[in-house]
Amino acid sequence: MGERVTMTINGMSHEDEVEPRTLLVHHLRETVGLTGTHVGCDTSQCGACTVLLDGDAVKSCTVLAVQADGAAITTIEGMARGDELHPLQQAFWDEHGLQCGYCTPGFIMTAAKLLSDNPNPTDDEIKIGLEGNLCRCTGYVNILKAVRTASRRMLSGSTAASASARSSE
């Protein structure tokens, strides 16, 4: 009854057997063991499950694992390079862009796509770009700041601005 699927997840090839109705998010969490992608709803409203699928930000609760056969997927676990955080991760940390952190992986993945399409977005563009993600803790204020900060740092090529900021504050 299972179907074989092969995906490249965070740069590594995974071949697994899945039930046809298994959602990508459950496949990632339960079979592959990447639990950084979260589930916050059952009507594709919250965005907690967002991953990059062939470079597009998708809500992985709306995609079947079999549909992702052959795709390249990036999850939150694939964003840092070793110890070096992705500029968005660093900016979320620096700007206090998270409280409980449950929504955060989804926001970071959606924002990653936004910044790759539009490296220097206006506030309104950020807000529209992140409208499909819900956060219950932050009031979004510092999420907006974090995306702005990440965008600025990525444009100027500096991602390490924060290490010094951290010790001086």
Partner: peptide
């Protein structure tokens, strides 16, 4: 009184938080 950055964040921003459903 200091703006110390959160110590819980490194795990949460990298997908290594441990919410209840993450460990089976």
């Amino acid at each position: 009184g200091a703006r110390v950055q959160r110590r819980e964040d490194p795990r949460l921003i990298t997908g290594h938080g441990h919410y209840t459903d993450d460990g089976e």
